[in-house]
């Protein structure tokens, strides 16, 4: 298996018409761990993640993986803020990424059952996925994203509308994925979650990478007053 990391982004910009949604941003991501992207609403977190993932058009700048981009696309997955459920059973949803990669059906189903169990959906495999609760849908989305063992997993505010318990279950799954070697890049507006999960932090403001760094230096002593204010829960303009 070819390694896709490091990921290097040089002056990447995402635009919608004349409007800059995010950028220019420079960053590089390598090795295991969790990168947490924080910042106020509209700062450009979602835009940055889809840009790095390759689903948003790059208006300018460069994104480089350690391998050709087509190979890199197959080694990534994305979990949306609002999970997208295929109109199929839970188990068919989870198996889907394997089936489109050409894994034989029996094999795919076995692995999907395993994955369902690991996220606590073992009892719901025959249920129609769009009818699941919000927390169950997000767990399904995680299992589906992880089943093909991606090297990089993007998560856009995966716990935005979940209660504390569902959030903890999701975080446990994320920690396991991380120890198994998946690089996670996750946006969140929950500072508690950011502190619990982060190895590295990217603080976005007005579409720019304003501050950030290793979690153990960023959280105790952020370099910029805006980041400090944001961490303290003040409104950052």
């Amino acid at each position: 298996m070819t390694r896709i990391l490091p990921l290097v982004a040089e002056a990447v910009v995402s635009r919608r018409g004349p409007r800059v949604l995010v950028g220019p941003v420079d960053l590089s991501i390598d090795g295991p761990g969790i990168t947490v992207v924080i910042g106020p609403n509209g700062a450009g977190k979602t835009s940055l993640l889809s840009l790095l993932h390759g689903t948003a058009r790059l208006a300018s700048g460069k994104i480089r993986w350690a391998c050709p981009i087509e190979d890199a696309r197959h080694e990534q997955a994305f979990v949306f803020q609002r999970p997208v459920m295929l109109r199929r059973s839970v188990i068919d949803n989870i198996a889907y990424p394997l089936l489109i990669r050409g894994v034989p059906k029996r094999d795919a189903m076995d692995r999907a059952h395993e994955a369902a169990k690991r996220v606590g959906l073992g009892a719901l495999t025959r249920r129609f996925a769009p009818r699941l609760s919000g927390g169950e849908q997000q767990k399904l989305a995680l299992a589906r994203a992880l089943i093909a063992k991606p090297q990089v997993l993007f998560l856009d505010e995966p716990c935005a509308s979940l209660d504390g318990r569902a959030m903890r279950e999701i975080e446990d799954i994320l920690q396991i994925a991380r120890t198994e070697g998946t690089r996670l890049i996750l946006s969140t507006h929950d500072m508690g979650q950011a502190r619990r999960l982060a190895d590295d932090v990217l603080f976005l403001l007005h579409g720019k990478l304003h501050d950030g760094g290793p979690a153990d230096t960023f959280f105790p002593s952020p370099a910029t007053p805006q980041a400090r204010a944001f961490l303290e829960g003040d409104i950052v303009e």
């Binding site: 689903t55 696309r73 997955a77 949306f80 997208v84 295929l86």
Partner: peptide, 9 residues
């Protein structure tokens, strides 16, 4: 499905 299927390439 758009976003999901595009993301799954």
């Amino acid at each position: 499905y758009h976003d999901l299927l595009i993301s799954m390439n």
